[in-house]
């Protein structure tokens, strides 16, 4: 298992929310200015810390959505109705508010723009976020490596970054395949990740793609097992999973 070491102490930094934009009815992107941000690799995440007036604090991890871009960092946060941190980030925070965070964290689930292998990305729901960072880093580097994204959502309105993905699939070597698990647009099937869906969207095993899967545990387990079953090298499959209760 080859890895890129990320040494050094991770100090808490004070970011400032410079803008926020709605992605879907329940997902919001926070645009942060982070003086002292050391830079990151596409796919990494940050730890965020909120502190109440009496000193009570709560931490959560959020994937970075943006390609490396100096002190600017974007997090896309899926609001969990009964969550402790995500409602604050998406409903209470306003531009100008400070936010403590540290990172980047995780040096395994990352895509390196110098990589030459074709890339297969499989996203379930808000699992798209770290994969979007890879798609953006790919564009920023003007990489010619072909990317294929399989994006499983409950219904079309839940798709984060839909218009950007549509634009990028025209402008760069990116192919996007949606799977709709509850409601599909007219003329499109409803269905979950399956052997047929993988066979239709994935690279052949001979292409030796780099594979990144992110989403809820059930999606990631199913997708990873289908790809291994189709003959892909388990060592080429990197996964990031959300917990079943998803309290984020």
């Amino acid at each position: 298992m080859a890895r890129a070491a990320v040494p050094g102490r991770l100090n808490w930094l004070v970011a400032t929310l410079s803008a926020a934009r709605d992605e879907t009815a329940t997902a919001k992107t926070l645009v942060l200015d982070v003086p002292g941000w050391p830079g990151h690799l596409a796919g990494q995440h940050v730890d965020v810390k909120l502190t109440a007036e009496d000193g009570y604090s709560a931490q959560r991890s959020y994937s970075i959505a943006s390609a490396p871009d100096g002190a600017r960092l974007e997090l896309t946060v899926q609001r969990i109705a009964d969550g402790e941190v995500s409602p604050y980030l998406t409903e209470v925070m306003e531009p100008g508010d400070p936010l403590e965070l540290r990172g980047p964290i995780g040096g395994w689930f990352v895509w390196n723009p110098r990589s030459t292998a074709p890339v297969l990305l499989l996203a379930g729901g808000s699992g798209i976020v770290p994969l979007m960072a890879m798609i953006r880093a790919h564009a920023a580097a003007a990489s010619k490596v072909p990317l294929r994204l399989v994006y499983s959502v409950r219904n079309p309105a839940d798709a984060i970054y839909a218009s950007e993905l549509s634009e990028r699939s025209v402008a760069s070597p990116l192919t996007v395949t949606y799977l709709y698990t509850r409601t599909a647009p007219p003329g499109m099937p409803v269905g979950r990740i399956s052997a047929a869906a993988v066979a239709a969207a994935a690279w052949p095993t001979q292409a030796r793609p780099a594979i990144f899967i992110c989403g809820p545990t059930g999606f990631v387990e199913t997708a990873a097992n289908l790809l291994v079953g189709a003959g892909h090298d388990p060592a080429a499959i990197k996964t990031e999973r959300f917990g079943p209760t998803g309290d984020a």
Partner: peptide, 28 residues
């Protein structure tokens, strides 16, 4: 924040989970 009952003491920065999340770097 969402406080826990006073008798539940967790390590710093942790929250209480009732499910059993899965975290792995690759396929099972």
């Amino acid at each position: 924040g969402r406080r826990r009952p006073g008798d539940v003491k967790l390590p710093p920065g942790q929250y209480l989970e009732t499910g059993f999340p899965v975290l792995s770097a690759g396929p099972t």
